[in-house]
Design a protein around this nucleic acid. Structure first.
Lengths: 179, 179
DNA sequence: CCGCTCATGTAACTGGTTACATGATTTA
DNA sequence: TAAATCATGTAACCAGTTACATGAGCGG
């Protein structure tokens, strides 16, 4: 038995969803990403289907043919190898690369706020404020969409989005105070 | 005069750095990314040099040959078109795509924490705690590396990393309490 | 003179994006 | 019966990663 191959976050998540929500179709995997307040997971077919194919080739997912009426479909499930790789991906040990400060495009732009003329600068900060408040409402709805009974871990993860958004707003307060 | 082309965040940042720190080499651009606590910008030559080439082709950066002793080098500077595109990238209006909750690999893993057996689960949370505390120290050093006099916006942006890391730690507290 | 930093690139590979293509099932 | 949803994929394109390749300048 060889050491489990390292997988990307997308692949880890796919394994995780199949493991958590039982045998399901690739389509169901895609749907899972919709409604997420992060843009990282896109649910585009051009990303999901090739990734599923890779995982099958690697022996981490198994598929069996199924139908829904006359409609053919493929139900995916975790293999023992897939379960092992999932456990390794989750950690511990947690991959070092998972610890960097999450990338925030707003922070990146703020780095160059000095390039904006004073008038535009204020409008920029106002736009951030409005955008983040919209984002906050979305995240709150997202958190509320989790049933704590049936998916407690999902809710905890979603609360992470909330903390992250609060942090952005606090940061923006600080910036507005100092500029 | 046509509307400024939309640029990626990498391209926007390259324009921003050239604009902010005067004519500089592509090598200096790379160096700029080192020490950043985010993993988004990699400073790999395979990313920077082609990006610089694209920006030159698009007429947003201009280069002039220079030497340092006998060593040839190319000094990059913003063109008027580049300045316009930089302003458009910064916003307002700020690109909608910049507002999603920043992607956090730790949060993604937490979503599947239920797949971990109880013993491993505690070790997982401990590993997150240790990793985030290490990260916090790194971010604090990063913030301190900015001179508020010469680069106030840089410091404000770096403070964003600090807020983000604090948020991760608060979130982890909450998770540990609830599990 | 050795090793580090400055400096510029290329090439093969990988994976994601966008758009296209098809067809069954369910619901208003 | 029309529109939305379920369901599966492919193809061209684009950008980033890793590794390779080269060479000058500088400090000890």
């Amino acid at each position: 038995m060889s050491a489990p191959q390292p997988v990307s976050d997308l692949e880890g998540v796919l394994l995780g969803i199949v493991g958590k929500f039982g045998p399901c179709t690739a389509y169901a995997l895609r749907k899972h990403f919709e409604g997420s307040p992060t843009r990282f997971f896109t649910s585009s077919t051009g990303a999901i289907y090739p990734a599923v194919r890779r995982l099958e080739r690697a022996g981490l997912l198994a598929s069996r043919a199924d139908r829904r009426g006359r409609q053919r479909r493929r139900l995916l499930q975790l293999t023992p190898g897939g379960e092992a790789v999932l456990q390794a991906w989750l950690g511990p040990p947690v991959d070092e690369g998972a610890f960097g400060t999450p990338y925030d495009p707003l922070r990146t732009r703020m780095y160059f706020v000095g390039a904006l003329p004073a008038r535009r600068r204020q409008a920029f900060l106002d736009a951030l404020r409005r955008g983040l408040e919209r984002q906050l409402a979305q995240v709150e709805a997202y958190v509320a969409s989790f049933d704590p009974e049936s998916n407690p871990a999902g809710r905890l993860a979603a609360r992470g989005c909330l903390h992250a958004t609060w942090a952005q707003l606090r940061w923006l307060d600080e910036v507005a105070r100092e500029l």
